[in-house]
Design a protein around this nucleic acid. Sequence first.
DNA 1: GTGAAAGCGCTAACAT
DNA 2: ATGTTAGCGCTTTCAC
Lengths: 364, 364
Amino acid sequence: MKREVTIRDVAQAARVSPSTVSNLLNGRDGRMRPRTKARITRAIDELGYRPSRVARQLRTGQAQAFGLVVPSVANPFWGSFARAVESVAMRHGDQVLLCNSERDPERERAYVDELWAGGIRAVIIGTSLLSLDHLRPLMERGLRLVAFDRERQPADPPNLASVSVDNLLGGQLATEHLLAFGHRRIGFISGAIATVSRQRRLAGYRAALERAGVPFRDELVWAGEGNGYGDIDSAELGRQGMAALLDLPEPPSAVVTINDMYAIGACATARAAGLAIPGEHHGLSVVGFDDIVLAPLFNPPLTTVRQPLDDMARFAIEAIRRDTGDENEDEQPISAVMPPQLVARASTAAFATTLPANDHRSAH
Amino acid sequence: MKREVTIRDVAQAARVSPSTVSNLLNGRDGRMRPRTKARITRAIDELGYRPSRVARQLRTGQAQAFGLVVPSVANPFWGSFARAVESVAMRHGDQVLLCNSERDPERERAYVDELWAGGIRAVIIGTSLLSLDHLRPLMERGLRLVAFDRERQPADPPNLASVSVDNLLGGQLATEHLLAFGHRRIGFISGAIATVSRQRRLAGYRAALERAGVPFRDELVWAGEGNGYGDIDSAELGRQGMAALLDLPEPPSAVVTINDMYAIGACATARAAGLAIPGEHHGLSVVGFDDIVLAPLFNPPLTTVRQPLDDMARFAIEAIRRDTGDENEDEQPISAVMPPQLVARASTAAFATTLPANDHRSAH
DNA sequence: GTGAAAGCGCTAACAT
DNA sequence: ATGTTAGCGCTTTCAC
């Protein structure tokens, strides 16, 4: 393992001082003699010199990298988001440090602490916990934080940026879609309603019901058990939720789920119980949320609410890059709420009001 | 934004020198007076001191972090792998830098270069390109590289570590499973066979056919078009592959796919063409590879070949942590080949040798 | 236009 | 048992 080529080696080879090389590297070459410039450039190429990020960072305090904390990249939604973020970041020459929080606030804190110690001063956090207090100390020290999938809350510190889809509208679109199909008993399946986005999706569901004059029924909302960390196995929670709703004396004819993984789990349970998706008389309509890559490929293709992932990633990174280092504390909070889009596919269908003439399936 | 607490602040508060603090921090406290130790510990707590990774790294050259380069975290297999790696890494206090190569060797090189410049001296690379020459220069400079999903090749440099499932056996298991069900016309769907793992899975497929006395037919192997970078949309390639095989004068009755995403895409196409999965007379059996989280939830649940992801992640990290900094060049190459496991689910079924008594579907 | 010098926060060899 | 010192590779005043 050879020793690294340093800025001094380059300086020596080009017969200039390290500061001159540094000046060129950092664009302060306005009044530099073309000949000197050429000598330096040549030396850099010949020696294969690459400046050390570490040294630069120690000196400047700026990290050319930021953290990305998501519940779990094992969920394709977060995987796609991570990819989108990384792709935008790369264009700016930024590196991305990925962390899986599993929705555990303690892990979130530990990770962000760790990132901070690594010189990272900006983090995109993809969990929409109600309170971000566990990150406040670091924010007060100067951490730039962007919350993804979490609408801005009144009590949030002003230097917290936010990007989110309009979750209320999303929940509403999903529910209205089913209402328009004539469904009246509509279930809602989610893990613990412990995040802003889930609260708002549920609120959208209620709002849609109300507007349609359909009474809200508590028993049709399944919201997991216990504290319910864990995107570890959303699909499993979807299964459990569906099982619970099917156990009801009068099960729903359609279901809104908190995301596509839940939807897929819910469908699996329904099928195992002999129900068709969708089914007019003996079955269920299911709508998801996110529109993951797999949604259109699922059997049946999943009706879902799409989040504009690329736009959101772009905005998050812009937010993080804004006022790098500057001291403009008293600015407007940076925040965006993006429009969701209902994507109607085959997992939802009209509710049949009349009974079937004859039902072959009952023979089975 | 307050100034950071440094080791000097701690030293001052504890009325010792920075080196004493450093000694304690780095476990060189064998003969340190308990009282001094206590004073230092107390000062650290009170000031909320956290050592700077950057400074430490600049000094030691060691990066408490490594890179993870995968084709794309949008594919749940790589998402799960990334999560497994990160989870093991965290237990060691290591950070993980995630990079999506999209299977583009130029991107791989650029990323690894970038990581190297960032002081990262070890990288797990999850693409099994035939040649790793584009990374050779850096390896010669001392980069520790672990190839994941790529069996060790004779021409590989000795300091390249490898972890992989036994892909030959995997391809064989998948094919034998279908053969045992009586299938004789078995298709193989993959993107460009430009990686070691794909070559070996295909070889396993051939070996199984041969052993069963079934002639290998070129037209039953669909291997994408062009160079075919991109895990960007494996499912889409699966669709295309299936479409091509169904266009054959005599289509296969079963199909082995290069991974679960391909399988899911292939199923979607087959269904769209009115075929059942699996189907005795008018349908297809499909087997995937990887056993992603979604495989059991798919409709029908996917028969697939499981990779022992956690074991592989653990091994990869052990390999990376081995001989950190040491100069043992002439050691045995580190390499592991792990056993795959066939997971039989509902997407495969017996091939019917007799024709159906009456075929209702032909009416449609 | 270019260079000398100081220092970012830490560690480790060497003194005491 | 603890302190002194000299950097790691880079940037950035401030001189010339």
